[in-house]
Amino acid sequence: MTKEIIWIPNIELLATGDEDYHKEIFRDDLNKVKSQKKDLIKFEVFESYESFKIMDHFKNQVEDDRFRNSLHQALNKRKPFQNFNFLIF
Rank of each mutant, 00 (worst) to 15 (best):
P80T: 06
D65G: 02
F81W: 03
F52K: 10
S70L: 13
D65W: 08
F58Y: 15
Q61W: 06
K79A: 06
F81K: 07
S51H: 03
Y49D: 11
N60H: 14
N69S: 14
V62H: 09
I54Y: 09
I41N: 09
N83Q: 11
D64T: 08
K53I: 07
F46Q: 05
I41S: 09
K77C: 05
V62R: 07
Q73D: 15
E50R: 03
N60L: 11
K42D: 03
L71K: 03
N76F: 09
F43P: 01
R68Q: 15
K77M: 15
L40S: 01
F84Q: 01
E50K: 06
I41C: 08
H57Y: 13
D56H: 08
R78K: 15
P80W: 06
F52V: 00
L71C: 08
E44P: 00
K77F: 08
L71H: 04
H57G: 10
D64C: 05
L75W: 02
Q73R: 14
H72N: 15
K42T: 07
E50F: 01
E50A: 13
E63D: 13
F58S: 01
V45D: 10
K59C: 11
K77V: 03
L75V: 06
A74K: 01
D56Q: 09
K77D: 14
E63L: 12
K79E: 15
N69W: 10
N83F: 03
E50P: 00
